[in-house]
């Protein structure tokens, strides 16, 4: 299968505040097949987030190329959605209006916006909250809104930068399951940056392990479990074995 999103020999350096040149990414190549779920894992500051921003077209790599749908990617595309660690909701917009934003920016008609937002409200379990402001929501609820906003324009690719990083452990587990359920209603290709090994194994089809700076892939682990996956998987022996392999690769 041809890759929908592909990075070829991406290098990225940037200049720190003290004038030092930092190599963030070194020769990173990556190909994403349509409909797959990939997790990026690695120590802090290994360039995971930078890579994600390069894949989103937000950051131009120092060298190397990113292709989206066979064409070079130069700027953010509406078919590539990004979900951030912080919910990044607009405090002056209601839940409904926040989810609606990407459609509004894309010039989708009001009628169609209503239908699509309504569907996402339903899928993400936010029905009844549509007129609330972000300040009235819990962290988990706010992140649900951010996920709904990321999916509302039915993107081909969904990039997630530690989407559950700001949540407590219990909410996080629950949101992971929710995400799988929501994702199963879409055809999106997902790349998710995470710090949590179990989250990576639970959610993804494959886990890419990155080295400390300069970041590059040191290991690829294919996750064999079928979907839908349930929470019992977390205590499965194969699951714990995969976790141990990834942990060993990181340290």
């Amino acid at each position: 299968m041809t890759a929908i999103l592909q990075a070829d020999h991406v290098h990225h350096t940037f200049t720190a505040a003290n004038g030092q040149t930092i190599i963030a990414l070194e020769d990173v190549s990556l190909a994403l097949s349509p409909g797959t779920f990939t997790a990026l894992i690695g120590p802090s500051g290994c360039g995971k987030s930078t890579l994600l921003r390069i894949l989103a077209g937000l950051v131009k790599p120092t060298s190397g190329q990113v292709q989206f749908g066979g064409l070079p990617l130069h700027r953010p595309q509406r078919q590539i959605s990004m979900i951030f660690q912080k919910d990044n909701l607009m405090p002056w917009r209601t839940v409904y209006e926040n989810i609606e934003l990407p459609l509004q920016l894309a010039g989708v008609s009001k009628n169609e916006r209503e239908q699509r937002v309504a569907r996402l409200l339903y899928v993400t379990g936010l029905l009844g909250f549509e007129n609330q402001f972000p300040a009235e929501l819990s962290g988990g609820m706010a992140q649900r809104v951010a996920i709904a906003r990321g999916l509302v324009n039915e993107p081909d690719v969904l990039l997630m930068d530690e989407p559950f990083g700001a949540l407590d452990a219990l909410t996080r587990e629950q949101m992971g399951q929710e995400l799988l359920r929501i994702w199963s209603t879409t055809q999106a290709t997902v790349v998710m940056v995470t710090h949590s090994i179990s989250e990576a194994v639970f959610l993804a089809d494959r886990v890419l392990v990155m080295s400390p700076r300069p970041g590059h892939f040191i290991r690829e682990v294919t996750v064999p479990f079928t979907r839908p996956r349930s929470i019992e998987l977390l205590t499965d022996s194969t699951f714990t074995l995969l976790e141990a392999q990834i942990r060993a690769a990181i340290h």
């Binding site: 989103a56 937000l58 700027r75 953010p76 595309q77 509406r78 590539i80 959605s81 990004m82 951030f84 912080k86 990044n88 607009m90 934003l101 990407p102 509004q104 920016l105 894309a106």
Partner: peptide, 21 residues
């Protein structure tokens, strides 16, 4: 918020849309 700016950019917002919304 720079985070909201990045979110708008990721959504392929034009300069005018960033100003307006």
């Amino acid at each position: 918020s720079p985070n909201l700016r990045e979110m708008m950019r990721a959504n392929a917002a034009t300069r005018w849309q960033i100003f307006r919304h």
